[in-house]
Amino acid sequence: MLIYGLKNCDTCRKALKSLPNARLVDVRAEALDRVTLQRAWARFGAELLNTRSTTWRGLDADERSRDPLELIAEHPALMKRPLIEAEGEFHLGWTPETRRALGVD
């Protein structure tokens, strides 16, 4: 199981603590590969883009209108997190639904 996120993200740390067999992939240190990013986008669409982040608010209108996958690749903090890959399926966020799907109480 892989948790794509940021090592200093509190939500990612909570997920990692609850999923001891998971490995955190810090997307700032290890860029998310294009295929994984495309698969996640196909599953979640615009939900994958964190438009409430400080990084998003710092972008001008021209930058915001660019291809979202390119933006996430250039600015990993723009990806909503954690993005969890388990048994070939993606889960986004550390929501009650995600925890239920992963068998975490």
Rank of each mutant, 00 (worst) to 15 (best):
Glu47Ala: 15
Trp56His: 10
Arg66Trp: 10
Gly45Asp: 10
Asp33Arg: 11
Gly45His: 14
Ala15Gly: 03
Lys80Thr: 08
Arg66Met: 10
Leu71Gln: 04
Leu49Gln: 11
Ala46Phe: 04
His91Trp: 14
Ala22Tyr: 03
Ala40Trp: 00
Glu87Gly: 08
Leu16Tyr: 05
Leu49Glu: 13
Glu85Arg: 05
Cys12Lys: 05
Trp56Arg: 09
His75Ile: 04
Pro76Phe: 00
Pro82Thr: 08
Ala86Leu: 08
Val35Phe: 09
Asp62Leu: 06
Val104Ile: 15
Thr51Met: 13
Trp94Leu: 03
Asp62Cys: 08
Val27Glu: 01
Thr11Met: 13
Lys7Val: 09
Arg64Pro: 09
Leu69Val: 00
Ala77Ile: 11
Phe90His: 14
Cys12His: 04
Leu48Trp: 13
Gly5Ile: 09
Arg43Cys: 07
Glu87Thr: 08
Thr54Tyr: 13
Asp105Arg: 15
Leu48Cys: 09
Glu97His: 04
His75Gly: 04
Ala15Tyr: 02
Pro96Glu: 12
Ile3Tyr: 13
Glu70Phe: 11
Tyr4Asn: 11
Val27Tyr: 04
Thr51Ile: 12
Gly58Met: 01
Asn50Pro: 10
Ala46Val: 06
Pro82Leu: 00
Lys14Met: 07
Leu16Val: 02
Asp105Thr: 13
Ala101Gln: 03
Pro96Met: 06
Cys12Pro: 00
Leu69Phe: 03
Leu24Pro: 06
Thr36Ala: 14
Arg28Gly: 04
Thr54Asp: 01
Leu2Thr: 02
Leu69His: 06
Ala31Asp: 00
Thr51Glu: 08
Glu85Met: 02
Asp10His: 12
Pro82His: 10
Asp105Ala: 15
Arg66Gly: 01
Thr98Leu: 07
Arg23Thr: 09
Thr36Gln: 14
Thr51Lys: 15
Gly58Trp: 08
Thr95Glu: 13
Ala15Glu: 03
